[in-house]
Simulated scan of single mutants.
Amino acid sequence: MPEEDLQGMAIMLEDILAGWSQGAAAAVAQNRANGHRPPTNAEITRSLTQAVTSFRNENVIGPIAKYARVYRELRLPVVPDGKGRFGRLDVVIWLPGVPDLVVKIDSRPNAASAQKLAFARDAGAYPLWVRFGTGGIEKIDGVVVLDIREAVQGILDAGAPE
């Protein structure tokens, strides 16, 4: 797959996640003003998954959006090292005529995710790894990593007492 195609998909997804982070920061600030705690990693992951699935909207990909299919928690025929069950991908977006867009969302480094994304890449998909939270970010050939750690930290800090 051409690297520029993968980069183009990543740029579109980055735009979606930038919009997500602005809305999420405002919501978290309002919630904290009402006495609520900041969101957990699981809550952030669920919210990111919803944002990623919006990639198939007509505003993003145009008229082919009506043909797009989104799969969440798609099971893979691969068992990552040290795991006892098949791996899962967070979001897979199928579009006609182009490779599948495969997205894995992690709050920390995860060797099993790297294996799943490499499997998807080798199967001809566009693999994107969305990373937030702590830890380093590993570079994998043919996999674009979207580092949104700063944006998510800004969301977690929104509305925090000074």
Rank of each mutant, 00 (worst) to 15 (best):
G159E: 09
V91F: 03
V102L: 05
G19N: 15
L128M: 02
V98Y: 00
N110C: 07
L17E: 03
K83N: 10
I16K: 12
L13N: 04
G136D: 12
A114P: 00
M12K: 11
P109V: 06
K66F: 09
L89K: 06
E150A: 11
G124P: 00
G35A: 10
Y67G: 11
A24D: 01
F119S: 08
L6K: 05
A29M: 05
E162R: 13
M1I: 08
P99A: 10
G133W: 04
L95M: 14
S54T: 14
T40P: 04
A26C: 13
M9G: 08
F119N: 00
V79M: 13
E4L: 11
I155N: 04
L76F: 04
D106Q: 02
P161I: 13
D100P: 02
A151Y: 04
R108P: 00
G159A: 14
V91E: 03
T53R: 12
L146K: 03
L156E: 03
N57W: 06
I61D: 02
G97W: 03
E14I: 04
A112R: 02
P96D: 11
L13M: 11
L128N: 05
M12T: 07
I64Q: 00
N57S: 12
D106F: 00
G136A: 14
K139A: 09
V152L: 01
R69D: 03
T40S: 15
L48K: 02
